[in-house]
Simulated scan of single mutants.
Amino acid sequence: MRTMILISGALALGLAACGQGGGEAKTDAAAGGAAPTTAAVLEGPQPGLWRVTTAMTGVPGGATVPAVEQCVTEAKFEAPAQGSTPGADCTTEAFRREGDAVVGGTVCQMQGMKTESTIRVTGDFSSRYVMEVRTKMDPAPMPEMAETVMTMTGERLGDCPAA
């Protein structure tokens, strides 16, 4: 069985292209303009067996990751732990609800590069969700990587198999 921290993993994948991630939780809404409606941790998809497919644009040749099936016992949207990547100075927005979406983001500075990521997750969280992580890098390591988009689609397959 597995606990799934959705945003931490997605953010790590989204920032992997530039070698950044992690950060310090920011509980105010200065970056997004809207006040958070709950704490920085929000409940995610319901427990069960999920298939997650991932695709990326803005990376050389594009990227598609093979679908992963995993048994989830608990899922939460929360910011990555402070100091996840040594040398990166990151600030992470508290996750909040905006209508039918869970929204958050992060800004990192490392080795002269600024990375801004926005995260938006929609869906009913009982059968399906779509998470989009949009990352802008300045300066970009390559011109085509100035903006990348990672899209993760989760589909609940049913209950976890008995152990």
Rank of each mutant, 00 (worst) to 15 (best):
P36K: 01
R51C: 08
E24S: 07
A35W: 08
V52I: 04
G44M: 11
A29F: 06
A25G: 10
G33Q: 14
A12C: 06
A12S: 15
G9I: 09
K26W: 07
G21A: 01
A25T: 10
A40M: 13
E43Q: 09
I7A: 08
T27P: 15
A29L: 13
S8I: 06
Q46T: 09
A55F: 11
C18P: 05
L42C: 08
A16C: 12
A34Q: 02
R51W: 11
Q46W: 14
A55H: 04
A30Y: 10
G21E: 01
G48K: 04
A17N: 14
L13Q: 06
T53M: 14
L11T: 01
L6E: 08
I7V: 10
E43G: 12
G22V: 00
A31R: 14
L49C: 15
I7S: 15
G19F: 02
A16V: 09
A29S: 09
T53H: 09
G9D: 06
P47C: 02
P36G: 02
M4E: 11
L15F: 06
I7Q: 14
G33A: 15
A16R: 01
M4H: 07
T38H: 03
A17R: 01
T54I: 07
G33L: 13
Q20V: 05
R51A: 05
G14R: 00
Q20A: 08
A17K: 02
T37I: 07
G33R: 07
A16M: 03
G19H: 02
A34W: 01
V41N: 02
S8M: 04
V52F: 11
V41S: 05
G19K: 01
A29Q: 05
A12V: 09
P47I: 01
A35P: 00
A17V: 13
A10T: 13
E43F: 07
A10G: 03
A34M: 12
A25W: 08
